[in-house]
Amino acid sequence: MTHSIALQFLNGLSLAALLFLLASGFTLTFGLARVVNMAHGAYYLIGGYLGLQVVVWTGSFSLGVVAGGLSVVAINFAVDRTLITRTKGDPLLQVLLTIGITYVIAETALLIWGGDPMRVPQPDWARGPVVLPGDVFYPRYRFLLIVLGLAVAALLWALYRLTPMGAIVRAGVDDREMTEALGVNITLLFTLVFALAAFLAGASGVLGGAFLTLYPHAEWDILILALVVVIIGGLGSIEGAMAGSLFVGLIDSFGRWLLPEAAGFMLFGPMAVLLLLRPQGLFGRAH
């Protein structure tokens, strides 16, 4: 029994790690530029498929992760410059536009890679189990994903809270015009943050594809979870993305285990209650 609980806990943590990678980009993009990019799910999917292709060609998992991330950086750059800028900050239009982009990307992926679920091959060094204290056997890959998630979270947090660069980003989140007036090249800053967000989304597709598999409609499944993360944590907050991912990852894992029929309710019910008490999310500020 305690073994099962430990396993579900670890499953929840590894899902949380993956969700954090996706949601932190989404939340930063929104916090800084007020851009709602629903195509993040599609970025995850296409990054995963492209990374998978690179892993198959080169045999290197790490190369696949980097390739998945970089290809999405390129896609996002094009999408942002040609399309998203033309919505002029209207959230309704941004949502419709980026959903349209999701349709295009997801269907293109379906035409190329087909409808059967595909799994990104896990690297040799991540195969097999790890033995954790208490004789808990856990898949090495998912364990490493937890470690990676924690590392990226710590790195992002330090970057955001402790470095001059992070201070500028925070200033941009607070007051864009004022930051610009102080001589900060805000366009360059946006481009950098967008690139980081896109890289994380694409890379998370490869990382997630290695244990959740890639399949048609995965773009929506993962997007919904990421959205619940940012709703609970608060839009635009990196700490919120951490708390939200932990919450969603653990609830989803334990929910599927204890009450599979009601897993949806267990996830969305607490979100509704939180909404009643704190409409802006745990770490968010009222907009």
């Binding site: 959230p91 959205l227 940012v230 709703i231 897993a263 996830l267 969305f268 509704a272 409409p279």
Partner: peptide, 30 residues
């Protein structure tokens, strides 16, 4: 039940109603 989402607005409202709507699908399939 979902109406509590009107306490928010703008982007929040869009995202929250989307998440609520998804709950219905998860019930329908599971």
């Amino acid at each position: 039940a979902f109406g509590i989402s009107v306490r928010t607005g703008g982007v929040y409202f869009i995202l929250i109603t989307l998440a609520f709507g998804q709950m219905a699908l998860s019930v329908a399939t599971s």
